[in-house]
């Protein structure tokens, strides 16, 4: 199981880019942390999420 934004999900083995597409996030306006470390944007296509990982997807909105 992979924990995404606090919820357990069955996304084991998925790449970060695939996960973002599946959940409907725009890659250019997110930051993704896996186990409290940033996943560099250059690694979205290759970074695989594994059983036990805890992922936080921060999706930014406009305004300031």
């Amino acid at each position: 199981m992979v924990k995404i934004n606090g919820k357990e999900t069955a996304h084991d083995g998925i790449k970060v880019s695939q996960l973002l597409e599946k959940l409907g996030y725009k890659p250019q306006s997110v930051a993704v942390e896996c186990n409290e470390e940033i996943v560099p944007k250059s690694q979205y296509d290759t970074f695989t999420l594994n059983d036990g990982d805890s992922v936080e997807i921060v999706s930014f909105v406009g305004g300031g």
Binding site: Q28, S29, V30, A31, E33, I38, P40, K41, V58, F60, V61, G62, G63, G64
Partner: peptide, 15 residues
């Protein structure tokens, strides 16, 4: 103020 710029700064700083 712009979402993509916020993401750019946050990603760059955290990296």
């Amino acid at each position: 103020d712009k979402a993509d710029q916020k993401a750019m700064l946050v990603n760059t700083v955290l990296e």
